[in-house]
Computed example of a mutant assay.
Amino acid sequence: MPLINVYLRQGTTAEHRRNVSLGIHSAMVDVLKVPQDDQFHVFHEVSPDNFQMQPVVFGLRRSERAMFVQISVNHRTAEQKAELFRVIVDRLRLFADVPEEDVLMMINETARENWWAAGRVVNPATGYDERMNDAPTGAGATG
């Protein structure tokens, strides 16, 4: 049950936000194998005065369309997170025409026991939602 918060400047369209959501969610389904109906995205449009960012960050020019994507999810391997970042950037470019340099991301990992929603059933062997057929198994699987 990942929770996605997307922070961007005021003035985007509902269609743009839907396309951003579609790009992020399709990456979550493909890379982390979250169930298709496991989608919780919250968009925060803030005034330009409340979105302070240098125009050049890490040597790359960022536009006024830059967004910050914050992902709260159970523990994932470094390889899974790197792949997720790569695929999200690709999908945001494809679905929402967001250039790579305008995507800034962060993952907050939480313990699997910190998530709850009515109807959610966790497979005790994997720590993942029981509907995740491709979830990792074994000692390294923590949710």
Rank of each mutant, 00 (worst) to 15 (best):
W116S: 15
N114G: 10
G143Q: 06
V6L: 08
F43P: 00
R9I: 06
D102P: 04
P55C: 04
G127V: 12
I107E: 00
A141T: 08
F68T: 07
F85M: 06
Q10L: 05
D134A: 13
H41G: 05
V56Q: 04
A125G: 04
V42N: 15
V31R: 01
A139M: 15
R131W: 02
V6M: 04
G59S: 08
A135E: 08
D102R: 03
R61L: 08
M1W: 04
R93C: 09
G138K: 13
N133Q: 14
V89A: 00
T13W: 02
D97Y: 03
M67A: 11
V121Q: 11
R120Y: 12
V46C: 05
H44F: 07
E130M: 12
F58Q: 13
L22D: 14
N50L: 02
A82W: 04
Q52F: 03
T12Y: 08
R76V: 00
P136S: 09
E100T: 14
N5D: 13
E45F: 02
V56W: 03
V6C: 08
D129S: 01
E100F: 00
P124K: 06
F95V: 05
T12V: 13
F85P: 00
N123M: 12
E101P: 04
H75G: 06
R131M: 11
R120F: 15
R120D: 11
H16S: 08
A96F: 04
P35E: 08
A117P: 02
L8S: 03
N123H: 06
N123K: 10
S72I: 03
F43D: 00
R131Y: 10
D38V: 01
F51T: 06
R112G: 09
V31P: 00
M105N: 01
R65K: 14
P48L: 09
G23F: 01
S21D: 04
L60H: 10
E45Q: 11
P48Y: 07
L92T: 00
R131P: 10
E45S: 12
N50K: 12
V87D: 07
N123F: 11
R76S: 10
Q80K: 07
V56Y: 01
E100N: 12
T77I: 09
G119F: 06
V6I: 10
T137D: 03
P99E: 14
T142S: 14
M105R: 02
G138F: 05
R86C: 13
N74W: 07
D37L: 14
R120Q: 15
T12P: 03
F85G: 06
K33C: 15
A96N: 00
F95W: 10
V46I: 15
V56C: 14
L3M: 12
G143C: 13
E15Q: 14
V46E: 07
V6K: 03
F85Q: 06
F58W: 03
I24T: 06
R65E: 09
S47A: 15
R65A: 09
F51N: 07
A14Q: 15
A14I: 08
T126A: 03
